[in-house]
Design a protein around this nucleic acid. Structure first.
Length: 752
RNA sequence: UGGGGUAUCGCCAAGCGGUAAGGCACUAGUUUUUGGUACUGGUAUUCGGGGGUUCGAAUCCCUCUACCCCAUCCA
């Protein structure tokens, strides 16, 4: 496995954890709920979890998150296992189930109750919701929250034994009913469910909720990195609360979130997928039009192509919608080098070669020259052949390369033919072409000297086999479908009477084929029989001709005007803020932006005032405070900072007197943040005094210039952006110590 | 509306103060017995908007805007 040099953010985190020693072994898990068929979004999650485990020599578990017995089923467990296996991954040990941990999780619940951190609530459901408050209003705690530990223990035990009906009681964590994060308002831990669990049977009358079971299952399995999708960001606080409150010792897992996969012209939610399957809009979970793993598999996609796709879309935190063309590229790219080329005519038009007698068998390679694979078959040839109806036009546009009354074509792997007569039926439809072949033009030994613009596919009429071909188009006709209204009515086209060359059926050189000039096809794994072969179209070839045709018909896309940005209103300053602001502007002559940020933040202004009392340099001080200090204050409180205003004043002093440059000041400040050391001490220890001597700098510039002759050329040719490049190089060479202003000046001079 | 996120080309996406990577799509050309493939070029003076700091900002600060997630006894 080659590790790409540019890592995604998850791998960056994992590597940092390994380096810091926080993690000894990387353990991940793929934890789906078995309540539906996995789709390509799951494939992304599988690729991430199993991929990271493999890249860092760890392991990945497959865990069924089966905490809700009303929705889950063993048939989905099988589909999930199939998907992981098909994609080529191996999970560590047996398949895990959250239900295997029910006893342990229950024990942890008892522990929380004993700690006074969990209680049995007996409020009805709607009141619980009401008590929770809203996003803007705090909630209030149930009166049952005051029950004693003994009462809670007793009640919970009886819940477990099944003494109560569904909904009568629940177990909740006692956290904070007014937390800004709604998830923390005394989250539910256990609910009563008198239903049979598909694995645990009727052992349990209570089932743990996701937020309680998931973190503990991760912990029990020794997971180091619990990777999930963005919508669980708010749940991370509970995840950590449970683990921390229980005092669980390392190694404990940490949760990280990434954006789920979206693809246009399809849907990815389990709910919508289920609707399509149950509503009969598609033919089961493995319908080739569906973005389910089973669907892609049946359609003919390879696991390699799905994995390549997951890799190509990357991992990030921005919600996004990937274009299907990216997926289509991946499968074409994979199949191009793998599968044999054969000929199949989807919409046959009869061609009679009036000057050909008898029959023969032609040799034809399964692969073009640019595919390094061996293999060939015999192609029967005779007077009666069929070509694609699209490949003949009586009145063609001028960029049409195929057969016309005036234009000859080659029958791929055979002879060049020329149209002599067009036969039509009563309605004017072309039913036959009478043509002549050139005997000297035989493929491989062409002495005819005839030049043609294209070679078309064909089959011999007598020996060709009749096959069914299923052509799939995108499931929906809009990019971001909402309802069944958006479905594409033509997403499935069944061609009953396509004609294929006999070798495909008799020799079966592969399961997947490229039907020349048309696309990639796959023998349907369910319906294919030798008597009645059925092929699924996996994806078409790129086809610039088809595109030209269709784009000429459709209207040009409307260009969306850029939305005009309207500025919102800024909150007015309070009176004291206004007074401060005025003082900064009038007395200290600060720039109004800086004065504004300072005045609006009490901590910042206090810090600033203190520094100002040390050093009378209002402008420089204000700049450092509103930029650097403000950043640190965003992360932690004033009292937690390791540096103080006096030190910042000292830092500004050595900037002002030219001892160090602004650039070095950033470096010094960073050190102050970390260690709280004095700036002049840092400068001394690290030897950071600025170099302003033009002679020294000049020498370094020369060096940089001789090392980068190309860029010198480019600069002289007018690429002025490169000035920054040279300055950067010089600064790098001096460890940042060169006086950037001097460098700038000298570089500009030398490069003139 | 409180909290948590996100914003870089038509679509993904790197980038973490010093020349705006890469892929898809698009486009022009070369090769081609697939209008395929391969190859070669062209595609962001600019990073959601506006300010500020800096010799230098996609990167640091302020501010505004847009979108996503959270008020299931779902996960």
């Amino acid at each position: 496995m080659t590790m790409s040099e540019r890592k995604d953010f998850l791998r960056t985190i994992v590597e940092a954890d390994i380096e810091s020693g926080k993690v000894k072994e990387v353990v991940t898990r793929f934890p789906p709920e078995p309540n539906g068929f996995p789709h390509i979004g799951h494939a992304k999650s599988i690729a991430i979890n199993f991929g990271i485990a493999r890249d860092y020599n760890g392991h990945c578990n497959l865990r069924m998150d089966d905490t809700n017995p009303t929705k889950e089923d063993t048939k989905y467990v099988q589909a999930l296992k199939d998907a992981v296996e098909w994609l080529g991954f191996e999970w560590e040990g047996n398949v895990r189930y959250t239900s295997d941990y029910f006893t342990q999780i229950h024990d942890y619940a008892i522990q929380l109750i004993k700690m006074g951190k969990a209680y049995v609530d007996s409020l009805p459901e709607d009141e619980i919701r009401e008590y929770r408050g809203t996003v803007t209003e705090a909630g209030k705690r149930s009166k049952y929250a005051d029950r004693t530990v003994q009462e809670n223990l007793d009640l919970f035990e009886r819940m477990k034994k099944g003494e109560f009906k569904d909904g009568e009681h629940i177990l909740r964590a006692k956290i904070d009913m007014s937390a800004a994060n709604m998830k923390l308002r005394d989250p539910l831990l256990y609910r009563i469910r008198h239903v049979e669990h598909f694995r645990a049977g009727n052992t349990w009358a209570v089932y743990p909720m996701y937020d309680f079971a998931h973190c503990l299952s991760d912990y029990i399995e020794g997971v180091s990195h619990s990777i999930c999708t963005l919508e669980f960001e708010n749940n991370r606080d509970i995840y950590n609360w449970v683990l921390e409150t229980l005092g669980l010792t390392p190694v404990r897992p940490y949760q990280h979130e990434f954006a789920r996969l979206g693809i246009n012209y399809t849907v990815m939610s389990k709910r919508k997928l289920l609707e399509l399957v149950e509503g009969g809009q598609v033919d089961g979970w493995d319908d080739p039009r569906l973005p389910t793993i089973a669907g892609y598999k049946r359609r003919g996609y390879t696991p390699e192509s799905i994995l390549a796709f997951c890799d190509s879309v990357g991992i990030a935190k921005a919600n996004s919608m990937v274009d299907v063309s990216q997926l289509e590229f991946c499968i074409r790219d994979d199949l191009n080098l793998k599968v044999p080329r054969v000929m199949c005519v989807l919409d046959p038009l009869k061609v009679t070669l009036v000057n050909y007698e008898g029959s023969e068998e032609l040799d034809a390679s399964y692969y073009p020259d640019d595919v390094p694979k061996e293999g060939s078959r015999k192609l029967p040839f005779s007077r009666d052949i069929c070509i694609e109806r699209d490949d003949f036009m009586e009145n063609p546009p001028k960029d049409y390369f195929r057969l016309t009354p005036e234009q000859s074509v080659r029958l791929k792997g055979a002879y060049i033919i020329t149209c002599k007569e067009v036969i039509k039926d009563a309605s004017g439809k072309i039913i036959e072409i009478k043509a002549e072949y050139s005997k000297e033009s035989k493929s491989g030994s062409d002495t005819s000297g005839i030049k043609v613009k294209s070679a078309i596919h064909w089959v011999d009429a007598k020996s060709a086999k009749k096959v069914e071909v299923r052509v799939y188009d995108r499931l929906y006709s809009v990019e971001a479908p909402e309802t069944v209204e958006d479905l594409n009515a033509n997403s499935l086209k069944i061609i009953k009477n396509a004609l294929i060359e006999p070798a495909v059926i008799n020799e079966k050189p592969d399961e997947r084929f490229q039907f020349e000039r048309q696309g990639y096809f796959y023998g349907d794994p369910v319906d294919y029989t030798d008597a009645k072969p059925v092929f699924n179209k996996i994806v078409g070839l790129k086809g610039s001709w088809d595109k030209k045709k269709t784009s000429a018909q459709t209207q040009p896309k409307k260009v969306e005007a850029k939305k005009e940005q309207v500025d919102g209103e800024v909150v007015a300053m309070s009176q004291t803020q206004q007074e401060l602001f005025d003082k900064y502007i009038n007395e200290l002559k600060l720039n109004s932006e800086v004065a504004n940020t300072l005045a609006r933040d009490a901590q910042l202004s206090a810090f600033y005032e203190e520094a100002l009392s040390q050093l009378n340099s209002p402008t420089s001080l204000s700049n450092i405070v509103t930029n650097e200090v403000a950043r640190e204050l965003k992360q932690m409180a004033l009292s937690e900072l390791k540096f103080n205003a006096v030190q910042v004043a000292e830092l500004v002093k050595i900037i002002d007197d030219g001892t160090i440059s602004n650039k070095i000041a950033k470096q010094v400040f960073e050190e102050m943040v970390k260690s709280g050391a004095n700036p002049s001490k840092i400068v001394e220890d690290k030897g950071l005094v600025q170099i302003s001597d033009p002679a020294i700098i000049s020498a370094i510039i020369d060096e940089v210039m001789t090392k980068n002759p190309d860029n010198v050329e480019k600069f002289k040719a007018g690429n002025k952006k490169l000035l920054g490049f040279f300055v950067g190089q010089v600064l790098k060479a001096t460890g940042g110590k060169a006086n950037p202003q001097v460098v700038n000046q000298l570089v500009a001079q030398k490069l003139k």
